[in-house]
Design a protein around this nucleic acid. Sequence first.
DNA 1: GTCTATACGACGATAGAC
DNA 2: GTCTATCGTCGTATAGAC
Lengths: 185, 185
Amino acid sequence: MRPAKVTDAQLYEDLAGVFRRKGYAGTSYSDIREATGLVKASLYHRFPGGKDEMVNAILRRVDKQFVDYVLAPALAEGNARERAEQVAERLEEFYAGGKRWCLLDTLTLTESKETMSHARSSMEFWVQAFARIGRDAGVPRAEAKRRAEDAVAAIEGGLVASRVLQNQGPFLRMVAGLAERLTGN
Amino acid sequence: MRPAKVTDAQLYEDLAGVFRRKGYAGTSYSDIREATGLVKASLYHRFPGGKDEMVNAILRRVDKQFVDYVLAPALAEGNARERAEQVAERLEEFYAGGKRWCLLDTLTLTESKETMSHARSSMEFWVQAFARIGRDAGVPRAEAKRRAEDAVAAIEGGLVASRVLQNQGPFLRMVAGLAERLTGN
DNA sequence: GTCTATACGACGATAGAC
DNA sequence: GTCTATCGTCGTATAGAC
């Protein structure tokens, strides 16, 4: 078999980039060609299921990166507040300071059960990770869960507001307030 | 000229509904036909510019409803806290308790300058209206502006989280906390 | 104002050569 | 693994009858 023109890592990165910006329906094979350098037929070779399969693969991969890197401090041991601050730092980096949208937002304008259910699982895991920080900081279980959901919503909302207002402020402030929101009294 | 099969009000409502759920690229003429009962050619008669023109018309109309109804208390006179509570009530109604997405989110996965600039203006006006409540409650100008942006982001984030988690809780809590966020110490 | 009919291009998808 | 070529379908858009 021929050497791949584009490595898996690079391909997934490019695919995630274009679907993040344009959403599922808004991303055509021309767009994907521009983003990856591969023509349709080559993409069908790697993803026989077409765009659906690409999106599922992207979600799996980005989800793993998010958990393994951004959420890692939340799942580790140690001082809750410090862990929260570290997650906040990594969130800012992951979303490029608010210039990169969230796939869980841009890919859920769909009726695909598979995509919706994957997105939901991902966000639920995210919430659980945040809730763990709260509990470790002494926040009662139910309250920690609520705060975690609100914190995730705040991040997502910061991204939407920053996109629409074309101003990174909202997202950056949401990130800056994360630790206090999760662990404060 | 023939009587319209569908009134303007009904047509706009249906169009807004389908674009809200599916976004710009995800909305086909078949979808629109299903939603409105009008075939493509009839739609082109009312909107010679096609989907672009529909979206712009929808944004103008929904924006007006939002300002005239939801934001009205924010722009009125009277007790700031009470006005904030009233806006919160209307927000909950407007977004159907979190079951209806926001056009400013679902339509901004586009490269259309016109749509983006309209969405931006709408959200900026929304922020200004919220900031007015804060100032009327004695919050310093810059702080009121910041709180207003964060409140708008919180609402948008609540909608995204509620959509992805399939749970209205996040949106409803964001609405419930609005008045305190805008006017509290 | 709404419809049927029609043209065209773009898109998703596949076959087969290298 | 990647490409060119090709096919059918669907979204976009218009013409013309009622």
